Each structure stands twice: as structure tokens, then as C-alpha cells.
Simulated assay, not measured.
Amino acid sequence: MSPTRHYVQRNVTNMVVPHVHPSHLTTVNQQYINNQHYFPHTESVRHECYETHTMCGTPFRPGGCGCSKRRGW
């Protein structure tokens, strides 16, 4: 008798193992507000001048009242 020959038969099965890796995305919308404050200022200057005339007496008028008299008409 001969020695027993040994044979190997392989049965291969493919197996799928799902690996779930959940993820989540949060979108954050940021708005920055820059409040700018302005304080416009204007300036004006007003010059006022007041004038009076005080007659302290009457002016000297040679020849009368100063009216011209026409002669010969």
C-alpha cells in the first residue's frame, strides 16, 4: 500500500462587513456688524456792527440854509 496522499480543498467565501462612520456638517454663517458713529459739527461766526449818528449841534452853513437862490428870473 502506498502512503495516503493528502489533498486540501479550499472553499473561499467573500464576506462584506459594513463599517458605518457617521458624520455631521453644521454650517455656521457669521455676520459681523461694524457700527460706525460720526458726529459732524459745523461752526459759524457772525460779526455785527452797530453805528449811530449823534448830531451835537448844527453845522455851520455860510450863506444861509445852503439853498441856492437864482436871480434874474
Rank of each mutant, 00 (worst) to 15 (best):
T52P: 00
H6Q: 12
R46F: 08
N11C: 12
P18T: 01
T52F: 02
P40G: 01
K69Q: 05
Q36N: 07
R61I: 15
P59T: 06
M1T: 02
T4L: 10
N11I: 14
R46T: 14
H21S: 13
I33G: 01
Y32G: 06
P62A: 07
R71Q: 14
E51I: 05
S68Q: 12
V20T: 06
T13S: 05
H6C: 09
P40A: 00
W73H: 10
Q36K: 09
P40C: 00
V45Q: 07
G72K: 00
R10G: 00
E48I: 13
M1F: 05
T58L: 06
I33W: 01
M1Y: 03
H19R: 15
P62H: 01
M15A: 08
C65E: 11
F39A: 09
N14H: 06
V17T: 14
P22C: 00
H41R: 13
H37D: 13
V20L: 12
T58Q: 03
H19A: 02
H41G: 07
C67M: 13
N29R: 11
H47G: 10
C67R: 09
T27H: 04
H53E: 13
T4D: 11
T52W: 04
M55P: 10
G66Y: 03
P40W: 03
G63C: 01
V28C: 03
H53D: 12
K69E: 08
H19C: 01
R10T: 15
Q36R: 10
